[in-house]
Design a protein around this nucleic acid. Sequence first.
DNA 1: CTGTTGATTGTTGTA
DNA 2: TACAACAATCAACAG
Length: 164
Amino acid sequence: MRPTKGKGPVKKDTKEALKPVEDKRVGKRKAVSNVSKSSKRQATKAKPAKKDPNKPKRPPSAFFVFLEEFRKTYKLEHPNNKAVSAVGKAGGEKWKSLSPAEKAPYEAKAAKRKTEYEKVMTSYNKKQESVDDENDEESDKSKSEVSGEDDEKSEEEDEDDDDE
DNA sequence: CTGTTGATTGTTGTA
DNA sequence: TACAACAATCAACAG
């Protein structure tokens, strides 16, 4: 039930009227032309109306991976602080402060995430092709693939740490 | 009670 | 090629 639909449910004024942060963060990406500055940039969980049978959610980026760990640490040092934004800001700064070597493990995970994501995309890809006949999600004829293809492969990555 | 926002950056996807 | 929107989180707030 979206209280205010997708507009400004809670604080629309804040985001629509004043929001320096948006300018800068989205500025890079969205600003540019005009497209629809009013459009929501961040999904807001309320998807428009796109029903995706198996929409592969984007795995956390290297930054997110780092954030996950960072959040814990941050909370340990700032248990009082319960603002997710705080961790985001702190994490962002720290992330930039991290050395490539530190990001290496995170990037490694990110690389792996892409590999798996790519797999999921294949399934999703099929859907994209036959978007026309969108009957109803999985009816009964679509369950062809996905039969038994699950190999637990080891995730070993050679560690080449050096560089730098 | 549920939905939404806030904030970070990165990554992927689509036009 | 370039933009655009989304990915997690956690709590608080609003309808």
